[in-house]
Amino acid sequence: MAKTRCLDPVVLNLWHPLGALVELPVDTVVDTVLLEERLSLAVGLGREVAVWRSCPDFVAGDKIDVASVSKSLPAKVAFGYLWASLGSPPDELFPIPEYEETDRRRLNAATFGVNVSAPRAIENFLDMGHFPYVHTDILGVEPHTEVKEYDVDISVERDEILATRCRFFQPLASSASETGAEVEYIFRVPHPYCSVLYKSSPVNDARYDVIAVFMQPLSQESVRAHMMLCILDEDNEDKVIKRFQQTIFGQDKPILENQFPKRLPLDPRAETPIRADKSAIAYRRWLSQKDVRYGVIPASY
């Protein structure tokens, strides 16, 4: 195996997202970076994919027959994205059953570059306390700042973090309500660099909108954040839905880029958690237990 800069076997053996399929030109070489490694990739008309360490034979923009790539790294398509691995990944990626429901809108809201570690970005995704301050008038508004008690579990059979009974007061909970209301969330962290949230759907009481972030680690301190939407909405144009999600993410971005240190400290005494951070505490512990080292500052004892 070629020499890699990332020496963390846990992270090397994971599946990592590289891009949204709909945004990739067919039969064309595209360059990207994963774990400080230059990679090239291509997608065929029938969604067959290939990913390889960049080499001078094929440069970005070249036309290529995907089937002709002999030395492809492990690669697959899931949730509308191309995933690859620099090590030996498990057969399956974590499931998102809702993705198969045919009445849902499924799209990539955007892929943004952010100068922060993947775990910091995941932790932000799990956090409700910042809604009134960072997403003012959209996901929260002062003085409704309380993070009510919720439950966090590490699901044994799935090896993922699950936060349930999460509730937060939202001024624009739905287009129908004027007064604001409590919105319910469920958060999953099924992968060290990916998270999926379920949010009560404004159009159907019994179902949830699903929003996921998949972090592509470019380096320990920079990522491409892919945002997947899988939601119940029959009225709005794609671009309106994307605009909403991009607005939200654009608000988090300067926070993430002003966090210090950029890698997530796993030492429980590096920062000060409060009860509202239960899911973040569980996440940090889970990363420690898995012995994830890339993008974090491991606890030293």
Partner: peptide, 13 residues
């Protein structure tokens, strides 16, 4: 120190 004790965000912002 330019770092919030909670989650490390710069206090200069």
């Amino acid at each position: 120190e330019n770092r919030c004790l909670h989650r490390g965000v710069r206090l200069s912002i």
